[in-house]
Simulated scan of single mutants.
Amino acid sequence: MKAVAARDGKAAVIEVDAPELKEGHVLIRTEFSGISPGTEMGIIKNSAGKSVMIGYSAVGRIEQLGEGVTEYEIGERVACYGSPFVQHAEILAVPTNLIASVSEHVSPQEAAFTGLGAIAIHALRIADLRFGESVLVVGLGILGNLVAQIASAAAYRTVGLDLSSERVELLKQQGLSQVFERTEDLEEQLDVLTDGHGFDSIILCAGGSGEELINSSFEWLRDRGSVVIVGNLTMEFSRAAMFKKEARVLISRAGGAGRYDNQYERENRDYPVGYVRWTEGRNVGEYVRLLSEKRISVQPLITDQFELDQAHHAYEKYESDSKILASLIKY
């Protein structure tokens, strides 16, 4: 079968063996997979002298059920998340812990970004917000946009910040009114936006050098608030600024509980809901529910769609065009 790999600093379409179907897993014929530009471009840049399969978010139809799988049917459309089970590949073998049913009225193109949706949801869970609290989302690429949309759907007082006027305008078009391009404008409105307290949590979806941004976040934060790092930021910051607010600096890792746990993923052993309420798989289901209920929308973010044989062009475009938000591979 065909799949996309990072090879010697480039993306390439290669031939690989189809995956083996194991107990508790399902075999999925991929319809669409969503590109995660931050993660995948990083893997490509570091692929000199090796070949690494890429991708972790897709949608498709079940072709075969593994032993013990009774809750799904052949032909059913499902969203799925998590490498090495989910990749940019024609056929996927995925544990049922990492899939969720997708109703026919839900766009499969939007469902293909379920991995990023789960990551966005998990970031908000790490922030641990309560009804009526405020959150600032910094960096409004596809991940930050999703975090902001989901936060707003959850009725948090949601504010966005990005240096790109296009990204700011897009989020405004999606129904969020308090979105800023300039930090000066945000700071001018800070007391009004937060009742004079500062934000309860600030979620950083930007990348690169983090020192200036994290230190500014401490200034925008309420006393004992939290800063959640989602993007690939460096972690230098001022201890004095952190101490002044007794701020918490947290890392949000992937899509939720169960990630990188072989027993949960490979062996398909779910955690009891009474002990672990939200797993990566349950977050996948929540993302699909938000799409189904039209509480969020990904369609306005999708700028490009590439046939599998032309997938390498998607990554070439990310290198040259900073305005791309979301790209799909079609199978």
Rank of each mutant, 00 (worst) to 15 (best):
D162M: 04
S164W: 12
A153S: 09
V168E: 08
A155R: 11
V147N: 09
T158V: 05
I142E: 05
R157F: 06
S165I: 06
L143I: 12
E166G: 13
A148K: 04
Q149V: 02
G160L: 15
R157E: 08
L146Y: 14
G144A: 06
I150E: 05
A154D: 14
S165E: 13
V168K: 11
R157Q: 10
I150A: 01
V159M: 05
G139T: 01
G139W: 00
I142W: 09
A155I: 04
S164N: 11
G144M: 12
L143H: 06
V147I: 12
L140A: 03
A148R: 07
L146R: 08
V138I: 02
I142Y: 14
G141C: 12
L143W: 13
V147Q: 04
L140E: 01
T158G: 02
I142T: 10
E166K: 14
G141F: 00
Y156T: 02
L161Q: 14
V147R: 12
S165Y: 10
A151W: 09
V147L: 07
A151D: 07
R167F: 15
L143S: 05
G141L: 07
S164L: 06
L146N: 02
A154N: 15
L140Q: 01
L143A: 04
Q149A: 12
A148W: 03
Y156H: 10
R157Y: 12
A153H: 00
S164G: 08
S165P: 15
I150N: 01
G160S: 03
D162Y: 10
T158D: 02
L163P: 11
L143M: 13
R167P: 11
V138R: 03
N145P: 11
V168D: 11
A155P: 05
G141P: 00
S164D: 12
L140V: 01
G144W: 13
R167L: 09
A154Q: 13
R167W: 13
Y156V: 06
